[in-house]
C-alpha cells in the first residue's frame, strides 16, 4: 500500500506456446515486479499449439511496460500486448448465487432483468443468476445485488478480442 505508483487497471493478452510451465513463467514476471493479478483466463486458440492468456492487473503504466517487455522475452510467449477498451470487445461472465425470501425474489429478478442477466437455477431458496457483460456492468449489478444476501459469486475474468482486422 505504501506504493506511490498510480494504479490503473490493465488488460494484457498473451499468445503463448501450449506447454506446461508457461503459466508459471508468466505469473513469475508479474510477481517479481509486485504486480497483483486481478483476473486470469487461459483458453485454447484455433491452433492447438498455442493458448491464449488474458490477464487483468493493476499497476503503473511504467511497471506494466516493463512486465510486457519481460514476458515478451520468455521463449514460450509468442506475443504480449496491452489492449485498450476502445480497440477491443471485452466480456466477462458472472454467476451469482443468492438466498432469497419471498419478498426479495421479485426485486432480485427485476434488477437482473434490467442488466439482461438470466435466472439459470432455483433450488430451495437459492437462486443463481448468470450475467454476461462488460466488467463495469458486472460490477454494477453485483453492487446492487449485494444488498440481497449474495452467498457466492464466481466471475470468469475478463476476455478480450481485438476488433476488425487487428489480431489480439
Amino acid at each position: 500500500m505504501a506504493n506511490t505508483d498510480k494504479k490503473d487497471i490493465h488488460t494484457i493478452s498473451f499468445l503463448v506456446a501450449n506447454k506446461p510451465g508457461v503459466l508459471v513463467r508468466v505469473a513469475l514476471a508479474f510477481a517479481k515486479r509486485g504486480f497483483n493479478i486481478d483476473s486470469l483466463v487461459v483458453s485454447p486458440t484455433t491452433n492447438a499449439k498455442f493458448s491464449r492468456m488474458t490477464i487483468t492487473a493493476q499497476g503503473s503504466p511504467e511497471t506494466l511496460e516493463q512486465i510486457i517487455k519481460q514476458t515478451s522475452k520468455l521463449i514460450d510467449v509468442i506475443r504480449a500486448e496491452e489492449h485498450s477498451e476502445k480497440e477491443t470487445i471485452h466480456r466477462e461472465l458472472a454467476l451469482i448465487k443468492l438466498k432469497h425470501t419471498p419478498s426479495t425474489k421479485p426485486i432480485i429478478l427485476k434488477q437482473a432483468e434490467k442488466f439482461k442477466a438470466k435466472l439459470i437455477s432455483e433450488e430451495e431458496s437459492f437462486l443463481i443468476i448468470e450475467h454476461l457483460g462488460t466488467t463495469a456492468q458486472l460490477d454494477e449489478l453485483e453492487a446492487i445485488l449485494k444488498k440481497y444476501n449474495v452467498v457466492e459469486l464466481v466471475r470468469s475474468g475478463k476476455l478480450v478480442i481485438a476488433k476488425g482486422r487487428d489480431s489480439t
Partner: peptide, 14 residues
C-alpha cells in the same frame, strides 16, 4: 529443479 530454477534460467525443458 525446473520450478526451483525458473527465475534464474533463460529457459528450461522437462
Amino acid at each position: 529443479i525446473i520450478g526451483i530454477t525458473m527465475p534464474i534460467v533463460k529457459h528450461s525443458y522437462l
